[in-house]
Nucleic acid binder design. Sequence first.
DNA 1: GATTTTAATGACTGACCAGTCAGTTGCCGG
DNA 2: CCGGCAACTGACTGGTCAGTCATTAAAATC
Lengths: 204, 204
Amino acid sequence: MSPVPRRRKDARPAELLEAALEVFAEKGFAAARMEDIAARAGAAKGTIYLYFPSKEAVFEALVRSAIVPNLERAEALAAAHQGPVAPLLRELMGLLETMIRDSRLVVLPRLMIGELYKFPELARFYRATVIDRGLGLIAAMHRKGVEQGEFRPEDSDAVARLVIAPVLLMAIWRTVFAPYGDEPFDPAPVLRAHVEILLRGLAP
Amino acid sequence: MSPVPRRRKDARPAELLEAALEVFAEKGFAAARMEDIAARAGAAKGTIYLYFPSKEAVFEALVRSAIVPNLERAEALAAAHQGPVAPLLRELMGLLETMIRDSRLVVLPRLMIGELYKFPELARFYRATVIDRGLGLIAAMHRKGVEQGEFRPEDSDAVARLVIAPVLLMAIWRTVFAPYGDEPFDPAPVLRAHVEILLRGLAP
DNA sequence: GATTTTAATGACTGACCAGTCAGTTGCCGG
DNA sequence: CCGGCAACTGACTGGTCAGTCATTAAAATC
């Protein structure tokens, strides 16, 4: 009836991913309809298939584009840091806290956990690029702290997992129970206690 | 063709839930077919609908039957305990660790996180019956430790969340990445470090 | 052993939706 | 101003599956 092409080839993929994030967040991967994603980006269903070969490909592109840049920022932050590790850890935690509260990306952990096991390839990519790299970043911080006599020796990989576990769980908590109008739940006190207990627990 | 009624009304529901757990674990809620669940329980699809009104109802019954009894066991354990809290916490952690390694219930956290937000009623039930109760149990332990001078004062609800976060994350980790033949990942060292750091971090 | 009750069956229906493709429209170069 | 191309459209197809229900036969009752 009213096909109104706009010649926006360059902008399209990003717009579609933005829309996909919203729809996936609301309905989950399986229940999200390609037509909804397209509509929210102001396009028709067929348009998506000009840029992505399948629904799974959209999910994969979304994950890549949303996570990798953030990880790189965190790495830059850590690389630039000098002196004792504790303040860096606090800073990183504060950053993650604001992400949990403000960013629309909070839904990603829930989405990944709920759907990742169905996408072997994406799971492998994610594990190598996000998890191993993210854990590596934190493990390196811990190792540096041990060298500087700031921390007691301990399995650094295990410590890295323990550092991020509460952060992920707060993100999940928010998105699983938020939709039902319950009081929104403030992750701040939990994360504050987390840093406190963690730094005391790691001290020599 | 071959309807072979056996008069097993009493045993059926449990058998069906057992089968449902397996199928949900393999495929997730959305992709699990009612016919598969029935077949695995040695029944036809229609049989399920004699005992459960819908697929969602099966999921709900499964969650209830699988989690509540375990929670009650943990509560009994805590109620019977005397003296310092730390050993009780270690014992509880050991119990959870074997559950993560051995029980077929490990998949439930992943399943709940992936699907719970679609079931408002179940989410509310779960939150009241499992989460608030489970967190309450651990928070009470912490409070008792504070009273006995064993722990430094700290937000007990936050501590409870911090105690279980790594446990949940290890369970999720196992079930998200396990299917791809990667090395199975041993949660033991992480949980050992967790208890160690936690108890040091909580000490006065 | 006839009758009733009840567990169980599985073919069928209706709804849903990912992915396709023939067709439409605006843009641009000549 | 026209012909061809590039972006876009949305009706359509093929497949899937939750839930239904007429039918079957074992077990219970008399």
